[in-house]
């Protein structure tokens, strides 16, 4: 028997090995095709019950998880913090234990506190998948970004990826940094000094203070959403100034030595961190990212549910 490929939970890319990350990406490949079928459904997770526990607003991630679950034939329930007992003050663990008492198999959780997914994973028997916890990680977003890069460049090793914007508050940035560096990419971060974590170089990344430098250096830009609430907290003088200094614009990209691939995890602030011409331009893979998101989440659900791979070469005759 092969050991469970990923363990019980997916809380982040930091604890995973390069081999485990590649396994998820490779497993996502055949799942892309499932979404192109006339009947977009396979019975792999039939009878499994999955709860999507979202304590923070989300459109893309929640819908993407829900499609992934439904296309694997799992039964799904969505719980949002508003309109549930959470708004009456129930704790996270109590909510989850009550759900577990109804015999669920998996929990997909988004929460405002860093470490919430791991906290929950240690306290319930069900598989826990992190759909974004505070400023910590958003592993499936990191995986779908890496899958999109791999689709376009063929491999991750040696690729130069610049992550631009609010690195300090971004779980997407952290998952990308962990995943990309484990797979051998060179990663740089670029943003205003107030939005870069102190000692960010300890994660193995280069700091490029100017967006022009990032554009000169990189093969791909992952442009993060500028979380508008940060402006009121005094991290930025104004959105217009941010756009003027750090915005990814057609004029700036025109000076790049090669065509840069443009990624954005959404939702976009058009005209702030990214111009519409760039977001809708020929080198944008923002919508392919969304498509890949469903495949990556199907792969994660499938692997955690027990679809562990056989690492040994199999010959015929095994029925």
């Amino acid at each position: 028997m092969a050991a469970p490929a990923l363990g019980k939970d997916l809380v982040g890319l930091e604890p995973l090995s390069a081999e485990q990350i590649r396994l998820i990406l490779d497993t996502a490949e055949p799942f892309k095709e499932v979404s192109e079928r006339p009947i977009k459904k396979v019975p792999a997770l039939r009878g499994k019950t999955i709860v999507n526990l979202f304590f923070e607003a989300s459109t893309r991630t929640r819908i993407s998880f829900e499609f992934a679950e439904k296309r694997l034939s799992a039964d799904t329930v969505n719980v949002a913090s508003t309109g549930s007992s959470v708004s009456k003050g129930e704790t996270l663990v109590d909510t989850a234990r009550n759900l577990e008492a109804m015999r669920i198999d998996m929990v997909v959780i988004r929460h405002g506190s860093s470490g919430a997914a791991q906290f929950l994973g240690h306290r319930i028997r069900s598989n826990v998948i992190n759909a974004g916890d505070g400023k910590h990680e958003h592993p499936t977003q990191g995986l779908l970004d890496i899958l999109t890069l791999r689709d376009r460049f063929g491999k991750i090793e040696g690729l130069k990826v610049a992550i631009c914007g609010d690195i300090l508050h971004s779980r997407v940035a952290r998952s990308n940094i962990w995943g990309l560096t484990k797979l051998g990419a060179e990663v740089a971060v670029c943003g205003p000094a107030t939005l870069l974590p102190r000692n960010v170089h300890e994660l193995g990344v280069t700091v490029l203070p100017r967006i022009e430098d990032a554009i000169q250096w990189a093969d791909a830009l992952n442009v993060l959403r500028l979380q508008l609430e940060r402006m009121h907290a005094g991290f930025l003088p104004s959105l217009r100034e941010y756009n003027r200094v750090f915005g990814v614009t057609t004029e700036r990209l025109a000076k790049a030595p090669k065509d840069l691939l443009i990624l954005h995890p959404g939702p976009m602030n058009r005209g702030v961190e990214i111009d519409s011409d760039v977001a809708d331009g020929p080198h944008s893979v923002i919508l392919p990212q969304v498509t890949n998101g469903v495949a990556v989440r199907m792969a994660v659900l499938y692997l955690l549910a027990g679809g562990s791979p056989d690492w040994t070469q199999q010959t015929g005759g095994v029925d």
Binding site: A2, P30, V42, D310
Partner: peptide
């Protein structure tokens, strides 16, 4: 993905 033994533990090739 159409197998009926995902629950039972055993080696399983990559999809």
């Amino acid at each position: 993905l159409y197998r009926d033994d995902l629950q039972t533990i055993g080696p399983r090739p990559v999809v």
